[in-house]
Design a protein around this nucleic acid. Structure first.
Length: 1137
DNA sequence: CTCTCCCT
């Protein structure tokens, strides 16, 4: 179907209605308060008396069922107890709220408000409303990853496509290779550290290392001292209760001499290392004598005093590595540490391993474990080896790498990420993203299929890693207890935390987390030296400064790639332009031609050619020039000299062209790939990048780094949810990481565009963990669904702000996921909510709670497919390109480069025309998508483009015609498939109606969708200021500059200029998905709502009502008071309330 | 009048 038709199909309706209302010159009817309550509201919930009676019965049945089922779940109880001893009491208290939102008045109602069914079992056939907790069926729990069915080629099978419709886009889609770009990406990722013979920084870490050595020694001592004899005779339950009564209660079981069950199967194969020596005879991680810790595991492994004389570590599984790999492995320092590392792991339930990038820890430690029998059925530790990564690319590429090193198939060494998995029953080693494991925990708290979990990149302190470490500290504990009680043949679970920096005190010294300090093993990394140069002064204009420094480096220093760190897309584009103008191939050709015209010779002899030859060969030539280099560097460091040089026009010329490549996350994959292509011969690679190049991507051949020292960070105001993008100084750790990027292929240099004084005194050591910067309602809901009721008591490595926790609980209460407990002013913690059945159902979906709230109610009026699309799109984020990026993202640049001097001028005219056409098409497309739903919601604009995309069967062409990012669209598509699948597997009664070609929603559906959005964002409401303050507003034709009052925000807010609502008359009531502070406070993701929906959806936590009043027509009405500021909404009929 | 970066 040609795009034109798609457009028509999708938008004819919207367009027409806009035109109509424009002609009439009227405001859109939905905005008008005098029309409320919406006369059509009841169409959304036809409900007979019979249905009502049935509903009440059903509800009663379910309430008992719920209660009983909870009693049955004794295992869950143990889990709960492991976190919070008081939860049982609360559970009892919470029972009366078992089905959210039900109260007596409601069930008396004849007329029920439109969106209300979301919280009540009004449609008997609708399982969402049934109040049944997520199916705990006997079959496998619906693991998130497994919810994806796949074709033989690995592509994802779209769920349930009706036969008549099966043609078109979904079929095209099963062509593989969409993922290829990602995979090839990986090959140059840090993933391959193991064989990399180059590593980060040389200097600066000695003091850390010695410091650590001391700590390690202390460590072994601590183990011996720890002793809790009083625990011996207690059973697990008594013991757990006792522990939990001690506030944050978790004590690592240490000295367990006679409480240990006899070990029947001691490690079968043992190898003596020093047969005749007495204890202690083991070598610690740093070569020191190591006392055998008296942990339970130590006793298990060593069996008895006699056995303790031998090393517990044996290679139990033979592996066959390719010879080249064996060779490369020997160069890795970590391989030499195999013995002590494995001993530490075998003797301790929790071990921390520190090793810089390039130490090979990520590839080698899993192999050590595998060789010693972990992950092999029938061994002492038959469960899988699980390794978590914070990024998908890393999980996939590491799995591939380790599989290669061990000569095993991808079904033995597998990966699992959100949309892709190679896991099989024979999997021994499983790499996954941290979110995947967190999801698995929700279904299987004990992780029975694993014998060891490695949390990699723990230093990045991502939210998921932090949560994982907290949860796993308890799981390890539980598994150990169960193993001791010989429950169900459970084996202990080991936890290994791997970190690149030495900041492990948050883990190691956190007694809430691990009551006795786990051993910390430090592994060396081989690395090339990187010389760091600070600027004398710190210039605020760091973009210009970066360009200047790049110029210097390029013109004066020997070949080698240059990586420039800036903060954002605009800066990068700007810097690229400037550099292109100076040293781009085109610019140089131009210069050359100009030069060669007056004097016809010399053009062939480039002075740099000689240098190039030398340096390309590296080695000897390099060393010589390194000295020269050094002199140059001195000069570079002096700003004054630099300025002088510039004035004299010295050192600013080079005939070596730059191959300039921008790099940031929003860039398409193909464009990102350019950084991995070797630059054209004779060119210097210059990459201008954001933070992506700091961790996610490793660019080969970089020898110079220019670091502006800043980064753009998203900040949330924890109290009011306002987000802002702020450019701030990076941490010392980040700066080190950036510098390290210069030393991966050889010795390198890092130029910091700030002074050393600033660095020393103003830079934080480490960046703030994500959990302290982000809203945490998602995390809180997930914890509660895992029966971790008192989130305050959770053993976070670093605790999130208390205010943030309370805010999260509040939000979840508003959404109906937690019971609404009247806040107790005296004791804030007593009002901690319990998860409701609605909340438990919400937790099934791998999206933010607001979105799952919308999904849970989305089955009405065939809206589920739409709401799934909407939720997918909102989760992924805005797919639209922006006007400014238009020229940049096109292929114009390539064309320009090819143009010769002669027709350059006419070409640029052509290019200008083309640009104008493009702009026109851009605005047309924007307008078209905005018109869905008559300009009433930004969300519909995205729905429009998603619908069109699916209709067209996806594809690059659609994306460029509609000015959306293909990456985002593809992700939306996959998420849509995943959510549809989850609905189908968990709620067999619901027809997810997965239509590949979704017809545009009709008017009624659009209304329901808006109500669903209101339900998801019921606590993010904004009201036009004049409605609150009663002032009479001047008639305005657009929303631009019209002030709004947004819930919880004291300052005036405005509809963001990019909103579809910015160009229509201002609606009175809207919900918004984001607030962002730039020049003003702006609302984004805005949807017009009817205030009567707000009062209905806001009950009970957000809306109260006045006493019944008679209005002038004699109807009994009530005035709803909404939100913390008690905004008065238009009166509603008393019976509707 | 704007978009650092990841993830279930």
């Amino acid at each position: 179907m040609p795009p034109g038709q798609v457009r028509e199909a999708y938008n004819a309706k919207g367009r027409r209605s806009t035109a109509g209302s424009r002609k009439r010159g009227k405001r859109k009817p939905e905005y008008r308060p005098e029309e409320q309550p919406d006369p059509n509201a009841e169409i959304l919930l036809p409900q007979s008396k019979d249905a009502k009676a049935k509903e009440t019965k059903e509800r009663l049945r379910q309430e008992t069922l719920t209660h009983k089922e909870l009693q049955d779940r004794s295992e869950d109880k143990e889990v709960r107890k492991a976190f919070d001893g008081r939860s049982e009491k609360r559970k009892r208290h919470g029972d009366k709220f078992a089905v959210h939102g039900l109260d007596t008045e409601d069930s008396q109602d004849d007329e029920i408000f439109a969106t209300e069914p979301v919280t009540r079992p009004s449609h008997p056939q609708v399982i969402f409303d049934s109040g049944i907790p997520p199916p705990k069926n006997d079959s496998k729990p619906p693991a998130v990853g497994s919810a994806l069915k796949r074709n033989s080629d690995g592509s994802i099978v779209m769920p349930k496509i009706s036969k008549t419709k099966q043609s078109g886009w979904d079929r095209k889609r099963s062509v593989p290779a969409k993922e290829e770009s990602d995979t090839s990406f990986d090959s140059s990722d840090s993933a391959y550290d193991s064989t990399d013979d180059t590593v980060d920084l040389s200097g600066g870490h000695e003091d850390f290392e010695t410091g650590l050595e001391d700590e390690d020694k202390e460590d072994s001592g601590t183990f011996l001292e720890e002793s809790r004899p009083e625990k011996k005779k207690l059973g697990f339950k008594d013991w757990a209760v006792k522990q939990l009564s001690v506030a944050k209660g978790y004590n690592f079981p240490t000295q367990e001499t006679d409480a240990i069950p006899p070990v029947e199967n001691p490690p079968t194969k043992k190898r003596k290392i020093e047969s005749s020596t007495n204890l202690p005879n083991m070598r610690g991680p740093l070569g020191e004598d190591l006392q055998i810790p008296k942990t339970t595991l130590a006793n298990q492994v060593l069996g008895s005093e006699q056995r303790a004389k031998v090393s517990p570590y044996v290679k139990a599984v033979a592996v066959k590595r390719p010879p080249s790999i064996e060779e490369a492995r020997l160069l890795l320092p970590i391989v030499a540490e195999e013995q002590p590392i494995m001993e530490a792991i075998l003797l301790n339930p929790v071990v921390i391993i520190c090793g810089e990038t390039g130490s090979g820890k990520t590839t080698q430690v899993p192999q050590f474990l595998y060789e010693s029998g972990f992950g092999t059925p029938g061994s002492e530790n038959p469960g899988m080896i699980g390794i978590t990564q914070p990024r998908r690319v890393a999980a996939v590429s590491m799995a591939a790498r380790v599989a290669h090193e061990l000569s095993l198939t991808s079904s033995r060494v597998s990966h699992q990420i959100r949309y892709d998995a190679t896991v099989s029953p024979s999997t021994s080693i499983k790499f996954m993203t941290d979110g995947v494991l967190l999801r698995e925990l929700a279904n299987d708290f004990l992780l029975v299929r694993y014998s060891v979990i490695i949390i990699d990149e723990a230093h990045e302190r991502s939210m998921n890693t932090d949560i994982l470490i907290g949860v796993l500290s308890r799981v390890v504990k539980l598994r150990e207890e169960m193993w001791k009680e010989r429950k169900d043949d459970v084996k202990p679970l080991r936890l290994i935390i791997m970190s690149a920096t030495l900041r492990v005190s948050d883990f190691a010294d956190n007694t809430t987390l691990f009551s006795s300090r786990p051993p910390v093993i430090n592994v060396a990394a081989r690395q090339h030296p990187v010389t760091i140069h600070f600027s004398r002064r710190t210039s605020p204009n760091y973009v210009n400064e970066a360009v200047r420094k790049a110029t210097k480096i390029h013109t004066r220093l020997p070949p080698g790639g240059l990586l420039i760190f800036l903060t954002g897309q605009n800066e990068i584009i700007g810097a690229c332009r400037k550099l292109e103008a100076k040293f781009g191939k085109k610019a140089l050709d131009l210069k050359k031609k100009n030069r060669s015209r007056p004097s016809q010779q010399g053009a062939d002899v480039e002075p740099e050619d000689l240098d190039l030859g030398n340096f390309d060969q590296d080695g000897l030539a390099f060393d010589v020039d390194e000295n020269m280099d050094q002199e140059d560097l001195e000069a570079l460091d002096s700003d004054d000299e630099q300025n002088l040089d510039e004035e004299l026009g010295l050192g600013e010329d080079s005939d070596v062209p730059m191959h300039i490549v921008p790099l940031y996350s929003l860039l398409s994959s193909e464009k990102q790939m350019r950084v991995f292509e070797p630059p054209p011969p004779g060119c210097r690679l210059v990459v201008v990048s954001t933070n992506v190049a700091e961790t996610s991507l490793t660019i080969p051949g970089i020898r110079y780094v220019v670091d502006c020292g800043r980064a753009k960070e998203r900040r949330y105001d924890i109290a009011n949810g306002i987000q802002a993008f702020q450019i701030s100084w990076v941490s010392k750790a980040s700066a080190a990481q950036r510098a390290g990027r210069a030393g991966r292929t050889g010795p390198g240099h890092c130029y910091r565009l700030y002074s050393s004084a600033l660095f020393e005194h103003h830079f934080e050591e480490f960046s703030t963990p994500e959990i302290q910067r982000m809203p945490i309602e998602g995390v809180v809901l997930q914890m509660k669904s895992m029966h971790i009721d008192a989130v305050v008591n959770f053993p976070f490595p670093t605790s999130p702000d208390k205010i943030a926790m309370r805010k999260a609980e509040k939000t979840l209460t508003h959404l109906g996921a937690l019971t609404f407990a009247t806040p107790d002013v005296k004791n804030a913690l007593s009002s901690v909510g319990q998860i409701t059945d609605l909340g438990r159902t919400m937790a099934l979906f791998p999206v933010s709670p607001r979105f799952s709230r919308m999904l849970v109610s989305g089955q009405q009026h065939d809206c589920l497919p739409y709401i799934i699309s909407i939720v997918s799109a909102m989760s992924v984020g805005d797919p639209f390109l922006y006007e400014e990026v238009l020229g940049q993202d096109g292929s114009d640049v390539e064309n320009d480069a090819e143009s010769s001097l002669v027709n350059l001028r006419s070409d640029s005219v052509k290019a200008k025309d083309a640009r104008n056409l493009k702009r026109k098409a851009f605005f047309q497309s924007q307008h078209m998508h905005s018109s869905l739903g008559s300009y009433s919601s930004d969300v519909f604009k995205v729905l429009s483009v998603v619908g069109g995309y699916e209709y067209a069967g996806g594809g690059q062409k659609f994306c460029s015609e509609n000015f959306v990012r293909p990456k985002a669209m593809e992700e939306i598509h996959k998420l849509r498939a995943q959510i549809s699948n989850i609905v189908q597997t968990n709620f067999p009664g619901v027809d997810a109606k997965f239509a590949p070609k979704l017809p545009p929603p009709n008017e009624g559906q659009l209304k329901v969708l808006k109500q669903l959005l209101a339900a998801g964002f019921i606590d993010q409401v904004a009201v036009r200021k004049i409605r609150i303050e009663g002032a009479d507003g001047v008639q305005v034709s657009t929303s631009k500059g019209v002030p709004y009052k947004a819930m919880g925000i004291s300052e005036d807010a405005f509809i963001h200029p990019s909103s579809v609502l910015a160009n229509v008359p201002p609606p009175d009531y809207v919900i918004f998905s984001e607030v962002i502070r730039t020049s003003r406070i702006f609302l984004k993701g805005v949807t017009v709502v009817n205030p009567s929906w707000l009062s209905a959806l806001g009950k009970p936590s957000l809306c109260s009502f006045s006493k019944p009043l008679k209005n002038n027509v004699g109807t009994v009405v009530m005035i709803p008071q909404f939100g913390p500021d008690r905004w008065e909404l238009p009166a509603v009929k008393a019976e509707l309330r």
